[in-house]
Design a protein around this nucleic acid. Structure first.
Lengths: 193, 193
DNA sequence: TTCTTCACTTCCATTTTGGAACTCGGTTAT
DNA sequence: ATAACCGAGTTCCAAAATGGAAGTGAAGAA
């Protein structure tokens, strides 16, 4: 029973992570490359042209070209002509791409909290409807309280359950406590705030 | 005035992105490497030992060793002995690491929405205080409404303002609308839901 | 004594990324 | 009408990161 492809797992290569039954791995297979999230940030900020992105991020045209091609293939960005004669293009977010906004927000939040020096944060997010500079929060849509890692659990969804029946692998626990033992160890290095 | 280091910018290498005045770039400099977020996911799920992580992710010990070393250096994880005689270690989240939970959540959400096939989502998140399987939402802590990308703006914070005075670069706009023109182009490819 | 487990290293091949220069269609400046 | 100048890339090669296989070393266990 050690035939490749018959339930025996080999090494995982990065370009195969989208085959994992894991939404994190699948998301990273689309936006987990170097530069990709920074390119998407630029497009959210209104920097949508090849040249502009290239100069803003200071990466090589080669890399940018690759990344944009991949983002268009994955339907995160769409390449649309903003001028004919001469034919010129820009990149716009699709619905799927727009839906990455929460990811942008939490990356900003963590960086603001843990990586900003004493000079303060780089940008402030403004919620136009209420006019305030805010730090968005994750809440439970049911009880409206703030999400705390220690109050969350993960349990197998349909895909993992199906897998558990279909092949030889079993789902060890029906309910895994998330971060349940993630207390600060007594000798933990102090992370700067 | 083309002396290196005197205001003239060169190419940006990936290991220099933490020098950008951008919280997204700074966050990615810590967790933007291949495998890093998946390792952190494992630790959140309670998979905390070298071997266990290695077998779960099927990466090489070399890579895992590198990543763990970096995460400990960056104070995301702490290496603590769970047994002496023989001396054995496990990796635990620090406060700084625990604070990456929102990032885990939004990666899961996006993957669930856009990458799950008809077999359904891999895992469901359960909010233990209210007992429901939920999909966390980002809200404005001020007016409690759901964050919509088109209702958000970014404006320079203290660090960018200081930079604008200090060196020659200017901040072009005081207020950049985020995603203001990110409408669906008419010929946009339909992203599968 | 040899075997196994955990937690890694070392060595080398493959893949990805980075740097520099070049292309190509169209436009404006002289 | 020719030269120079965009914007939006490509091509080619070198450097760095990653992947695969095998080895290490300390402590129990058989």
């Amino acid at each position: 029973m050690s035939v490749k492809g018959a339930g025996v797992v080999g090494k995982m290569r990065w370009n195969e992570i989208d085959t994992m039954t894991c939404s994190i791995a699948r998301t990273l297979s689309v936006v987990g490359d170097r530069w990709t999230m920074l390119i998407i940030r630029d497009v959210f900020l209104g920097i949508r042209r090849f040249d502009a992105i290239q100069h803003d991020l200071r990466l090589t045209p080669h890399r940018l070209s690759d990344r944009l091609r991949k983002l268009v293939r994955d339907e995160i960005l769409a390449r649309v002509a903003y001028e004919r004669h001469p034919h010129r293009f820009e990149y716009r977010l699709t619905r799927k791409g727009l839906d990455l906004y929460p990811l942008i927000v939490v990356l900003v939040e963590w960086g603001d909290r843990w990586m900003a020096g004493r000079e303060g944060v780089p940008v402030e997010l403004v919620h136009r409807p209420c006019g305030h500079s805010i730090r968005p929060e994750l809440i439970c849509p049911n009880c409206k309280s703030k999400i705390e890692p220690r109050e969350m659990s993960a349990r197998p969804g349909p895909a993992l359950k199906k897998r558990a029946l279909g092949d030889g692998t079993t789902v060890k626990q029906s309910r895994t406590k998330l971060a349940s033992q993630a207390q600060e160890p007594r000798d933990a290095p102090k992370a700067r705030v």
